[in-house]
Nucleic acid binder design. Structure first.
Length: 275
DNA sequence: CCTATAGCCTGACGGC
DNA sequence: TGCCGTCAGGCTATAG
């Protein structure tokens, strides 16, 4: 689930619930996987606890699918940042009553006011750690510009895909080219643009590329307005229909389910003709 | 450069 | 009910 619009919704959620409250304790229920989390020694887990306790969150930022929660600087010389990545499952839940603790809570941040923020993830393929420089992290991770960055305009997009011969869906999902688009929103963008996901991006005309670019921005912005909630997406979106019996919201044709870039893709064979 | 695959984990679901 | 295979909206490393 968590692609750019979903992570943006979580960023807003953190900002509306969890800022300026002292952290009293951190409960790491399960060490989270992925490269930098040193699960063998639990060092990463201890570091998260040590850096968080006694401090407050100041603000939340996002780049692509990564969420960065900035800690206050009081008494600390380095700007520590809590990094959250949700992989395929997961989210955040702010609650008070212990009964309201969500299933699969992997990390619990207890505030002294009695509320808790849970990092939830059914599978443990996420990432929770403390870093100290967002820009340096983005650089080291090799992430491209955030797909909704206003500076990432059509000119920049065109330059980023110039010379590429890969399938358009693969390029949209590459975090190095632009950060934030995953399997579901790539399908949505291509549906709105009427482009078959297997089309080589080099085959698109300048006009088609420009239309694709604007559809990308529109789809992401619209999804954010609806808080990434599939139930609230416009009726022209294909997203809610991505299941075996799904039909095209535009022409009613049965949707096709195919593997593209090793990922399950849904498309309308009438509106997104193969070229 | 591009594509496909396996693996990291866990759980939901359908078929038997 | 239980067991089994398959699948899952991310990402990385690796091979061809």
């Amino acid at each position: 689930m968590p692609e750019l619009p979903d992570v943006e919704a979580m960023r807003q959620y953190v900002e509306s619930t969890s800022l300026h409250q002292e952290i009293g304790d951190v409960d790491i229920r399960a060490p989270i996987l992925m490269p930098h989390a040193d699960t063998a020694t639990g060092a990463a887990a201890r570091e998260v606890e040590e850096k968080l306790i006694g401090r407050c969150f100041d603000s939340a930022r996002r780049h692509g699918k990564y969420l960065f929660v900035l800690l206050d600087e009081e008494g600390h010389s380095i700007d520590d940042v809590l990094l959250l990545h949700f992989a395929m499952t997961g989210g955040l839940e702010y609650f008070k009553r212990p009964d309201d603790e969500p299933d699969y809570s992997r990390v619990l941040i207890h505030f002294v006011n009695g509320y808790q923020l849970a990092y939830v993830s059914q599978r443990k393929l996420g990432r929770v750690e403390v870093i100290n420089d967002v820009e340096r992290f983005v650089e080291a991770q090799g992430l491209g510009p955030d797909a909704l960055d206003p500076d990432f305009d059509f000119e920049a997009f065109q330059a980023a895909v110039d010379g590429r011969r890969a399938m358009v869906k693969a390029v949209l999902m590459e975090q190095e080219t632009m950060a934030g688009i995953g399997n579901v929103y790539a399908d949505e963008i291509l549906f709105q643009a009427g482009i078959h996901p297997r089309t080589k991006i080099s085959k698109l005309s300048g006009d088609e590329l420009e239309d694709l670019f604007h559809k990308m921005k529109d789809v992401l912005k619209t999804a954010i307005e609806r808080q990434g909630d599939p139930e609230r997406l416009p009726s022209c979106f294909v997203g809610p229909h991505r299941h075996e019996e799904g039909r095209c919201p535009r022409c009613g044709a049965a949707l096709e389910r195919v593997k593209v870039s090793s990922r399950t893709s849904y498309l309308c064979p009438e509106c997104q003709e193969r070229r």
